[in-house]
Every structure is written in C-alpha cells, then in structure tokens.
C-alpha cells in the first residue's frame, strides 16, 4: 500500500493506493497517527487508489473517524471504487461520513 499525505493548515489529506486489509490497515493507522497534530481538525481520506477493502480496513477508517470526532474535528471520504463503496454501504459508513467525488469538492464542502 502506498500512502501519500499532505497537510494544509488544519486539514490533513491522506491518499491511499492499494488494498486495505489487516496488514495495510496497520500501516494506514500509523501513517495517519504520525501526522495528526493538534492543529488538524479535518481529515480527508482519498480512497481513489483503493481496489479492495475488508472489515479490518473498515475498522481502521472508523477508528480514524472516532479519533478526529473526539477532538471535534470532521472526516470525509473521497472517490471510492464499486467494491469499496459496496462494503462502506453494507457497514453503514456512508451514513456517518460524507463521500465526495473529488478532493476539490471535499475541501470546498466538508
């Protein structure tokens, strides 16, 4: 899994590329943790390059959501493929986190 991060003021953008499972979820967790400074109140998770997700990947996404919510921050998702979308819907994740087509939209609206 490739993880690319960008901090922009109070916003942290994380772009994932690969398959999000038990192994890579751990990497994602660590990568986000590392960059989640006190100033960050908005997390934009770009899943454009994610070709597969399972319940471990879901757990890692919801864990980040819980964490940013605890500091009264917000989190949104960007650009998911059909398999990923199906799983996010099945687990009800899209009811608690907005999903945007592009980072530009997410940054404007989230």
């Amino acid at each position: 899994m490739r993880i690319d991060k960008q901090t922009n003021g109070e916003t942290l953008i994380v772009r994932l590329d690969g398959e999000l499972d038990e192994h890579t979820a751990q990497k994602m967790r660590e990568a986000v943790q590392e960059s989640l400074g006190d100033e960050i109140t908005r997390l934009v998770l770009n899943l454009h390059g994610v070709t597969f997700i399972d319940s471990s990947g879901l757990g890692a996404i919801l864990g980040r959501f819980r964490e940013i919510s605890q500091r009264n921050g917000r989190m949104c998702l960007v650009s998911v493929n059909p398999q990923v979308r199906h799983i996010l819907e099945l687990a009800g994740v899209l009811k608690i986190m907005p999903l945007y087509r592009s980072e530009t939209r997410a940054l404007e609206e989230a």
Partner: peptide, 14 residues
Amino acid sequence: NPERMGLGFAFMES
C-alpha cells in the same frame, strides 16, 4: 480493540 468490527462472519455469509 474497538477497531475490531466483528463483521468477519457477517461478510463471509453475505
């Protein structure tokens, strides 16, 4: 661990 969803079997079954 709160990040353990407990959804493994549910997903297998679906």
